[in-house]
Simulated assay, not measured.
Amino acid sequence: MSFKPMFGEGSIKARGNSASPLRSVSWINSSVIFDNRRWECKEAELRWTAPHHLIVLTEAGRTSQTYIKSDGRDIYDGRDRSGDITFVPAGVERVGVYRDTKLSYSALWIDPRLDLPGCKNLSDLRLLINSRDDLIASLLRSLCAETSLGHKPSSIYVEHLTALIMLRLGESNNIRKAKARREPLSRPTLARVREYVDANIGSDISLTELAAVAGMRVDSFARRFKAATGLAPYAFVLEERIRKAEILLGGTDQAIGNIAIRLGFSSQSHFTSTFRRLRGIAPQAYRMNFIPES
Rank of each mutant, 00 (worst) to 15 (best):
L125Y: 10
E183T: 13
E183V: 09
E171Y: 07
S172M: 14
A178S: 09
D133V: 02
M166N: 04
K179S: 12
L149Q: 15
L161C: 11
L164G: 08
I129S: 04
R141Q: 11
I136A: 00
I156M: 02
I129N: 01
R141H: 06
P153G: 03
D124E: 12
I175F: 12
S155D: 06
H151C: 06
L169V: 04
R132L: 03
L127V: 07
L140C: 05
R181S: 10
L169E: 08
S131R: 09
P153C: 00
N121E: 14
P153S: 00
R181F: 07
L139R: 10
R132V: 06
A180F: 10
H160C: 11
L167V: 07
A163L: 08
G118F: 00
T147R: 04
L135M: 08
I136H: 00
C119T: 14
R182I: 14
S172I: 12
R187E: 14
P112G: 12
K120Y: 09
D133Q: 01
S155I: 01
L135E: 15
T147M: 11
D115A: 14
N130M: 03
S154P: 09
E171F: 09
C144Q: 12
L128D: 10
I175H: 12
P184E: 03
A178C: 07
H160E: 13
Y157A: 11
L149H: 13
I165M: 02
L128I: 10
L128C: 10
L169S: 03
E146W: 00
S138K: 13
D124S: 12
S131I: 04
R182K: 15
H151L: 04
D124N: 13
R187V: 11
P188W: 11
R141T: 06
N173Y: 06
R176N: 06
S154C: 14
L140Y: 03
L127C: 05
S142W: 03
L114S: 03
G150R: 12
S148L: 05
Y157S: 06
L116E: 04
D115L: 01
S138A: 15
N173E: 09
P188Q: 12
P188L: 08
L125C: 10
D124C: 04
R181D: 14
S172F: 06
K177S: 14
S172T: 13
M166K: 02
D115H: 06
S148Q: 07
V158W: 08
P188A: 07
L140E: 11
D133R: 00
N130T: 08
L169P: 06
C119H: 00
I136C: 01
D115I: 10
L185R: 07
S155H: 02
S131M: 02
L128K: 05
D124F: 13
R141G: 01
E159H: 07
D134W: 00
L140V: 02
P117A: 05
R168Y: 01
I136Q: 04
L167N: 14
A180L: 13
I136W: 00
L128E: 11
